[in-house]
Design a binder for these strands. Structure first.
Lengths: 227, 227
DNA sequence: TTTTATTATGCAATCAATATGCCATTACCC
DNA sequence: GGGTAATGGCATATTGATTGCATAATAAAA
């Protein structure tokens, strides 16, 4: 998660409005939802990078919701934060053990919640090497340079970020949404098609011509992966 | 971090003794340290998987310590938790922004601290791929890839979700209705027959040919189950 | 055994996702 | 400001996946 959608399950309050403003100023988009029943549906559609659930409102059904979030391929990586005005230790532990990344007591400070969200995000995205070598491709983050078989390849800014992202986790499949968030960041104003276009250009520069792809593989219905 | 050393910077208290016992019962080893000055040294030697720093004792020198921890390759992945009896919002935010993964108020519950430690650990370790393994089938969620006896099997999006669902709860019988809900989402209108078709193709790709099924069993009148 | 219900499967139509040429727009650099 | 490179994304072609009918096979019930 870099930037993205934050899905909040709970009613609007003064705090949540403040939170929304804060999130927006940081490039997130916040959405509210009134019931957990539609969780699967909403979450499947929007693929939020973080989900906040208010235990006060949803009570025990929250637990099964946590389970669903963790089980679903689309959301298993989303940051999950629980809110509750019940400050009971056992409840907090239960929440954390149910898979939540954090548990915040109400009334909460929107600024703190945001800070916690970012702390989780740091962890999710951590792991960045300065230099990556894959097959005959060499990527140097500091020099901002890419070589293929020793010969420099001229990549544009976006192409470089894209390649670096894909190559940083070889074999990992990145959805277009993930790519958009990590390469473009912030509120994304560009469409999925744009990702395709940049992949195409990147492939060209890497010298892809034959099928199957030597470097960047398309996973139909899912995304791309660097081989 | 799976299990490992937890380095605690702060004095022994009743809580910290309890914490030590808890950690030990979970397979961690706890070490206490009295001063931050030797932090780098201590931490370089022991490579703890988690570091807990008590702000009450170390005050402002904590910030530079956080920085050091984050800068050092050996420790930048360690979970970092700050403790403080000062429950000020700004302090908490400062801590989180300084790179801490969590901020816990004193007096703290050792059990909760452990739960928080584990929650962070989940995020850190989720770097190495999540896998389900059943018989000679291996499902890798991040790579979105399935292997049978080590050899990759190409599954389409739906096939992958279907397999993941069935395999995630082995021996559980899934009705077609359940399958439709989990794979297609709650309000998609495809028929039961469609499920059959996808099961068929999945079986093909898994190399099912003989009877009885080796992987996916049909429960007549009920649904399917992964053996 | 016969009947009925359920499941398996080949196949064609439909639908969806991706690749790519092309051009408008924007950013960058002398 | 003019020229050049980079970006965004539409439109279209292409490729790939999904759906469900029709029919066969199988299991359960009578």
């Amino acid at each position: 998660m870099e930037k993205g959608i934050v899905q909040v399950f709970g009613n609007g309050t003064a705090s949540s409005e403040q939170l929304e403003h804060l999130l927006e100023s940081e490039g997130y988009v916040m959405q509210q939802a009134q019931n957990l029943e539609s969780l699967q549906e909403v979450v499947l559609r929007d693929r939020p990078s973080a989900v906040v659930i208010d235990l006060d409102e949803f009570g025990d059904s929250t637990w099964s919701a946590c389970q669903e979030l963790k089980d679903d391929l689309a959301t298993r990586k989303a940051a999950l934060i629980l809110l509750s005005s019940n400050d009971d230790e056992n409840l907090r532990i239960k929440g954390l053990e149910a898979g939540a990344d954090d548990f915040v007591a109400k009334p909460y400070s929107p600024r703190e919640l945001l800070a916690r969200l970012k702390a989780i995000a740091r962890r999710i995205t951590s792991g960045d090497a300065k230099r990556i070598r894959v097959k005959d491709i060499e990527i140097d983050l500091d020099e901002h340079r890419v070589r293929k078989a020793g010969k420099p390849i001229d990549l544009t800014y976006i192409q470089f970020k894209l390649l670096y992202l894909l190559a940083s986790r070889r074999n990992n499949v990145f959805s277009r949404k993930e790519i958009l968030e990590k390469v473009w960041g912030k509120k994304v104003y560009v469409t999925n098609r744009t990702v395709d276009v940049h992949i195409k250009r990147l492939r060209e520069k890497l010298g892809e011509y034959k099928y199957p792809s030597q470097y960047i593989e398309t996973i139909h219905g899912t995304g791309y992966r660097f081989l």
